[in-house]
């Protein structure tokens, strides 16, 4: 089932035309990877899906991004509800310098999802359990989140997103600061998330896209040049540019 649909979506920073006529249909409960060379607009597109780009000065868009049938750029849409529905995990863990518990409970309170302590604790434990972190941190929930390893911090970031109960999770290079073992663990977690959530993943690591995604979009110079099953993209892409990019022969 279709979850995210971009219709002739364009994005500009001042006069710089970053995203050019993006059209893509992203399926529900699948992992969709977006790959492409640096500066091609992958992250800009990702940030357009939860309107985090709105905070960029001189940013303007035209076209539509439709999530669950609603154009999120419609003037009547509440941007906070979009961001609540579309969680995001960044390159480096971006935890608050507060306790593990508070990192999760903070979002619950400001989104008015839960107020009483027992409900909050239940959600905190459930989301930590979903990212397989509860066992490691159950005795130090009130200790600083920054004491965790990078991998655990990234798991906590994901737990923080899950606590808000979004439908879509965006990952912007989620493993770029992690070592190989931690990367494999986060990849396993992302694959598990597919059961409940629609995942969009931006990555420079093509092998990661090949390993974990169902579909892959190849973006070059602000355009999606090919969107197909990951298997097709990495074994027999239909466009020459895709072939050049995935085989490492691409030159701008």
């Amino acid at each position: 089932m279709l979850k995210i649909k971009a219709n002739n979506f364009n994005l500009y920073y001042n006069d710089f035309h970053v995203l050019k006529n993006i059209n893509i249909d992203i399926e529900e409960k699948k992992i969709t990877a977006i790959i492409g060379p640096s500066g091609c607009g992958k992250s800009s597109f990702l940030k357009s899906i939860n309107r985090i780009n709105d905070i960029v000065e001189y940013m303007r868009v035209n076209g539509e991004i439709i999530i669950s049938g609603q154009n999120i750029y419609d003037k009547r849409v509440d941007v906070n509800s979009v961001r609540k529905n579309v969680g995001m995990v960044f390159q480096r863990p971006n935890l608050f310098p507060i306790s593990i518990y508070e990192n999760i409970s903070f979002g619950l309170k400001i989104n008015k999802i839960a107020n009483n302590k027992s409900t909050i604790m239940a959600i905190v434990e459930e989301s930590l359990s979903s990212v397989m972190l509860l066992h490691d941190v159950k005795d130090k929930l009130y200790k600083s989140a920054l004491l965790l390893t990078l991998e655990q911090q990234q798991r906590l970031c994901i737990a923080r997103v899950l606590a808000i109960n979004p439908q879509i999770i965006l990952f912007d290079e989620p493993c770029s600061s992690l070592d190989n073992v931690a990367t494999k663990k986060i990849e396993e977690l992302i694959m598990k998330l597919r059961e409940k959530y629609t995942v969009v993943l931006v990555t420079h690591n093509m092998q990661q896209a090949a390993r974990i995604s169902n579909d892959t979009a190849v973006m070059i110079c602000g355009r999606i040049i090919e969107f197909a099953s990951t298997e097709q993209i990495f074994t027999c892409p239909s466009k020459k540019e895709t072939e050049s990019y995935v085989t490492g022969r691409f030159m701008i």
């Binding site: 090949a210 990495f234 074994t235 027999c236 072939e243 995935v246 085989t247």
Partner: peptide, 9 residues
């Protein structure tokens, strides 16, 4: 090299 596409084939 983890080849893909034509290289893999």
């Amino acid at each position: 090299n983890q080849p893909v596409g034509t290289d893999l084939r």
